[in-house]
Design a protein around this nucleic acid. Structure first.
Lengths: 351, 351
DNA sequence: GTGAAAGCGCTAACAT
DNA sequence: ATGTTAGCGCTTTCAC
């Protein structure tokens, strides 16, 4: 930047127009990449714009065009690794298309009028990306939005009875891969620590697990199920419950890494060695997974890709491409580390 | 035209005004809480507004008032726990004051014209919250912004030669607490795994550590320093380097939890037990800390509070209160868990 | 205390 | 291909 970097001037398209010797409407056309401008004119205006460092006023554009080039990002949980990665991916993609994100966190006042309603009602955003951990009571509001034709894309968030565009991970296959890995090591008694029952990913991962068992001719056992809430603590407690229950198992499939790491601690405290006594597979491949004790074998999800795709589909919908709501499924892959090993004959137990 | 769905709310202040039997300017006054409206009129208009569910158009307001009630959030790393927590706190606080956040991530194109310049130049935001991990080359741009009087508040981000409003954690005291904890257990040879040298928090935490050593009459030793980059991996490698170097130590103070957990793994692989052979203290109290092996003693930082405070100070500056840039320091506290124990006589070593 | 008039900076029909 | 004429919905003077 030369001497034009100070931003004090209040340039408008009129200044640009005068400088270029055209009317200001022509500048507007150039700004909006309209086809009906002579190449020479376009170049000249373009040159003036960059020489002056002119930036069109976003509010004025929105007011006149009813488009904000802003996307609403609704998420309740920035602490969740999955969602932060999704957001990073989405932000990158959106920026590449000239869109920005506006935060509309719903944390703390679930009973309050949902944030996305406000974002829309104030005509602040052109569409909404829902990166929500689970279905809430506000689903009715969502239904209304959809009925009004408001572009909404979600990641891993399904709504009963609604045809949303959802970008998701193939959790059935992911669950299958997790179980398969364990089965290949000879495990036949594989416990599962699930997430909250209302999540689709929970039932999907369980379904994949069941399919793998079925393929190996193993009958699922209800007592090998323990429910968690995704937190470290819940994985810890679930594993303890599994151990105290006295059921026999030689492996655990935890539906996310946090719970897997919590389970690892419970196993450790019970005097069991991983993977010698019990093998463990997680899900997510969070950064901590590789530094767990032992390093955790887990299912890696393409989170950033999911975010990027969601952003693109949202923008497509806003801009009138791709009318149909539809689901996209992304594949997972196994990250093989040291928490899995050969099954032993005898079932380890706490007492 | 995809979004041509007739949205029922096409209300403007004119509708409200007619309904209330006043001119639309009066409605505007009510909307903006102006004093020069008769209480009765105000109540009547207010009632109509809520009955109609009227929402003023944000773009029109911004265009006319030059205020957006939007804050720019600049961060390069959503994966960083500290910053995500700061953001959550800031978002909550901002919303309570009627402000929203717009994302202006700088990830990926550091050489590109910084995101915050755009946010400002397009008059998208009223002020900027910088939640940046460290000083970048764009500091020159920041200087310009400050010179122009643009409200900017940062968290834990200092800029040489600039008088910024910074909300930070008292890392000197935090480092002191970490070292003191170890010293109280009788440790005299305490290694340090630092973050990147350019970070102020790194030197602050080290300064606190040194002060604690000094109080105990211990001479610091250069060979007990190892540098990391905050990642698990770097903590792992730093601990390995420390061990291979052959210097004697009975404790490690890692300047964040990720590196502490990485170090834990290195220690484990070297056949050392924590805390029997080596004690470890981390910093941050990330969720994984309590589930490390062993559960990690660490320094807890009030991250959300820092975010909330930063947002408030930013809004104060925007609204003309509190002119002076100044620093705020928040206190840390020790989260005592199991990775620290009594120092042993003999120094453990790898070989 | 309230209303009238005048834009904010831009896009969007219409013209030509 | 370019200029003309209207607004977008609101905040602000400024009257009264």
């Amino acid at each position: 930047m030369g001497g034009n970097s100070s931003r004090k001037r209040k340039l408008t398209i009129l200044h640009v127009a005068r400088e270029a010797g055209v009317s200001y409407q022509t500048v507007s056309r150039v700004l909006n990449d309209r086809p009906d401008v002579a190449p020479a004119t376009r170049d000249r205006v373009q040159a003036i714009i960059s020489r002056l460092g002119f930036q069109p006023n976003a509010s004025a554009r929105s007011l006149a065009s009813k488009r904000t080039h802003t996307l609403g990002l609704i998420t309740a949980d920035f602490s969740d690794y999955f969602f932060t990665q999704v957001i990073v991916g989405a932000e990158l993609e959106a920026r590449a298309h000239g869109y920005r994100f506006m935060l509309g966190s719903t944390e703390r006042n679930p009973q309050d009028e949902p944030a996305y309603l406000h974002l829309l009602a104030e005509r602040h955003v052109d569409g909404i990306l829902l990166a929500q951990p689970g279905a809430h009571s506000e689903s009715q509001v969502l239904h209304e939005l959809l009925n009004e034709g408001v572009p909404v894309v979600t990641t891993a968030y399904y709504l009963a009875g609604a045809s949303l565009t959802v970008v998701d991970i193939d959790n059935i296959d992911g669950g299958y891969q997790a179980a398969k890995c364990l089965l290949d090591y000879g495990h036949r008694e594989i416990a599962v620590i699930t997430g909250p029952a209302s999540w689709k990913s929970v039932s999907d991962r369980a379904a994949g697990y069941l399919r793998a068992l079925h393929e190996s001719g193993i009958e699922p056992r209800a007592e090998l199920y323990a429910a968690g809430d995704w937190s470290y603590q819940s994985g810890y407690e679930a594993a303890q419950a599994l151990l105290e229950h006295g059921c026999s198992f030689t492996a655990i499939f935890a539906q996310n890494d946090q719970m897997a790491i919590g389970a690892l601690r419970a196993l450790r405290e019970a005097g069991l060695r991983v993977p010698r006594d019990v093998s463990v597979v997680g899900y997510d491949d969070i950064p901590a997974a590789a530094y767990a004790d032992p390093p955790l074998t887990t299912i890696r999800q393409p989170m950033r890709e999911a975010g990027a795709l969601a952003a693109r589909l949202l923008i497509d919908a806003i801009e009138g491409r791709s009318a149909q709501p539809h689901d996209v499924l992304l594949r997972t892959e196994l990250a093989h580390r040291e928490s899995c090993g050969k099954a032993r004959k005898v079932t380890p137990r706490k007492q």
